[in-house]
Design a protein around this nucleic acid. Sequence first.
DNA 1: CGAATGTGCAATAAAATGGTTGCACGTTGG
DNA 2: CCAACGTGCAACCATTTTATTGCACATTCG
Lengths: 98, 98
Amino acid sequence: MFAALGDPTRLRLVTRLCGGPLSITVLSEDEPVTRQAITKHLEALSLAGLVRDTRAGRERLWELQPKRLETARRTLEHISAQWDDALRRLAEYIEEKE
Amino acid sequence: MFAALGDPTRLRLVTRLCGGPLSITVLSEDEPVTRQAITKHLEALSLAGLVRDTRAGRERLWELQPKRLETARRTLEHISAQWDDALRRLAEYIEEKE
DNA sequence: CGAATGTGCAATAAAATGGTTGCACGTTGG
DNA sequence: CCAACGTGCAACCATTTTATTGCACATTCG
């Protein structure tokens, strides 16, 4: 999932989808790459569980699926917390030594 | 930075560094790839501002630099928040319509 | 109906990525 | 001192990723 958000184009797509569902063509308009490239990026995001698509006539609408964002956030929090612990232990160790 | 955390080996390195600074050789011992590969991963993490290195004699110690993790977390929070807003607006819109 | 629109699929090309080997160089400890 | 250890650097290879082009298919609207 971090890999999915790691591409600048995909991160941009995610932020644009914050405003609500959009079609492939609309998403392509403000990007410097072709529609097909955008499709592949959306499929990558879908594989990571970050977005999902709905068919509406001849359009394919993509929308955010923010549950996975929560898990990513928790992972980062976990790492931060562990690091804080490590720092605390290190401080205690130094104090003990002196 | 999401790209930096996107590689499984690098994410593993980050979690291992939660316990405190470690040298390249030590980090390589539990990984299936060569020391040089680990070096490249550490440099990628360094470029993203996630870790930093200190020289200690002939060793090079790497440690976490968790400030950037905070900004990443905030980014995810921001995206989640925007999405919540969008959902709320959508709900209001539908209600208004009926 | 027929043209325009929105999309899907396949082949391909170019670039980035992840990994390796081989060797050189500084540091440390007996 | 010198052998072992920890690291740096460069060349190189394979795979994956990113993006393109060309064409086909379905849907909508005048």
